[in-house]
């Protein structure tokens, strides 16, 4: 199996993501090295915390360029939580910050009221059911990972809003709002939830991503 690289950019849950990969029999390489990223067979960008800090770290380590190059080569990429949000063009978290722009759209605060105008608790902290919504036939590993209604662990205050609905692969409902759970454009996939913290269902999702031959 080709090498699975996890981007090490001084932010959040890299330890947990690597642990989860080890548990499913993968020996990931935790790296910020340009060459190792370019040669990886799978690239995972984890992350928790603030959008701006994540982007700052990526830029200062020149990893934004490396990630774009990796993606341009057509190889499978998975962003998790903040690692998913930075895939979009822009975020409104603590000011306006630009992202990697790999999927058109923005990142916006989760509304503090439900669609029925009742108070809604934010951050959204929940084991929530994910439903596949894209009309596009996502097929392959994504079909196994998202078509069945699984429960995954979410913890976030902002959510991704892809400009083109075709990039919205799966959602979860919170306060009546449809929150992006998984987004995708070609070989780039991002999940808002934490597969590394979502028990057997999350591990299974990671396994699908690693083992698929159709990314």
């Amino acid at each position: 199996m080709s090498r699975v690289a996890v981007v090490d950019y001084g932010i959040g849950n890299v330890f947990s993501v690597c642990n989860a990969l080890k548990h499913i029999g993968v020996d990931p390489i935790l790296t910020r090295d340009a060459k190792e990223i370019r040669n990886a067979g799978r690239l995972i960008l984890p992350g928790v915390g603030a959008f701006s800090r994540a982007m700052e770290n990526l830029r200062s380590l020149d990893l934004d360029t490396e990630i774009r190059a990796y993606v341009a080569a057509g190889r499978p990429f998975l962003g998790v939580c903040i690692g998913m949000q930075v895939l979009l063009d822009v975020s409104s978290e603590f000011g306006t910050h630009s992202g990697l722009g790999l999927i058109p759209g923005s990142v916006e605060k989760i509304p503090s009221v439900t669609t029925q105008n009742a108070a809604l608790r934010v951050p959204h902290v929940s084991w929530a059911q994910v439903k596949q919504v894209s009309a596009e036939d996502t097929g392959g590993w994504r079909k196994s990972a998202f078509y069945r209604p699984a429960y995954y662990y979410f913890v976030h205050s902002y959510s991704a809003q892809p400009a083109d609905p075709v990039n919205l692969m799966a959602t979860t409902e919170y306060g009546g709002h449809q929150i992006a759970a998984a987004i995708r454009r070609d070989n780039v996939t991002g999940v808002q939830f934490h597969p590394e913290r979502s028990g057997p269902a999350g591990l299974q999702m990671l396994k699908h991503f690693i083992e698929a031959d159709d990314c």
Partner: peptide, 8 residues
């Protein structure tokens, strides 16, 4: 525990 269990 974090290397053996996969919940928050």
């Amino acid at each position: 525990v974090a290397s053996e269990t996969f919940v928050p």
